[in-house]
Amino acid sequence: MTTAAAVPSVTAGPGPRAWRRFRRHRLAVTGAAVLALMALAAVLAPWLAPHDPYDLAVGPSGEIAFAAPPSLAFPLGTDSVGRDVLSRLLYGGRVSLTIGLVAALVAISVGSLLGVVAGYYGRGVDRVVSRFADAVSTFPALFLILTVSSFVAPSIVNVIVIIGFLSWMPSFRLMRAEVLKLRETDFVEAATAVGAGDVRVMSRHLVPNALGPIVVQATLGVAEAVLTESALSFLGLGVQPPIASWGNMLADARSITVLQSQPWLWLPPGVAIFLAVLSINFLGDGLRDALNPRAGR
């Protein structure tokens, strides 16, 4: 007779199984760890940053250094206005990562809501919304985002809203496809037979079962949002100085002189964006494999 303790948890639900699959994906786990570290650094920026990111950075002997190379006092050097690059990098991380996360959440929410409604009600509603999504998708993403950004004064909130409301199409299509599949399943049929209202069916049956691909899409959406924000800020239409964001720190290097002689100004933010987005992409890949296992890669 086997004891309860000896029985392996193969009978566990989809959650623990997915977690085990995820753990085996070494790159994804590394990505998650790096991302967690960066998020931690962003949250703890006020305590970790050696100087104020907005103020002139004063050195150990009371001097102010403009465009100074890395030194003990300023581990990543100072920029042309005399601010410590490391501190700006940490605070910039807060801005860039927050914008990425919130914008992706906005996009996922809008897209999923439209997707559930379109998929569930079908026919007229579906056709109208799908065609609208197709029309908006026809414009290259950055084109529309750039154009609309010029209508309003650039600010963090505006950047989040604009990116969020112009990136909902992929999650819309995903949710709609999932709902179309799930609509025909037995449990949804049972729910409607028992008299569950539309909203109840959508919120308690359709959405929770479509969460897998949505989570993966959300992760990749954060990566894309971080890249979009950095592009916007680099061009000058996103986060405005003196507020630091990784994108607008790179904008300092738009001159050849800076590019050539002050690499500490553009290498750190670029590498930071790269590491963050890479980690998110690894994480997303691992999540995709964990939540939708395929036989053989």
Binding site: A223, S230, F234, L250, P263, G270, F274, V277
Partner: peptide
Amino acid sequence: AFAGISVPSFFTAMALIYVFALRLGWFPT
């Protein structure tokens, strides 16, 4: 491939200009 989709294109551009145009002088900036 993962690296390629994770780097912001303006950073790649700057890095390439730095190495191949400014340092090596092979190509114009």
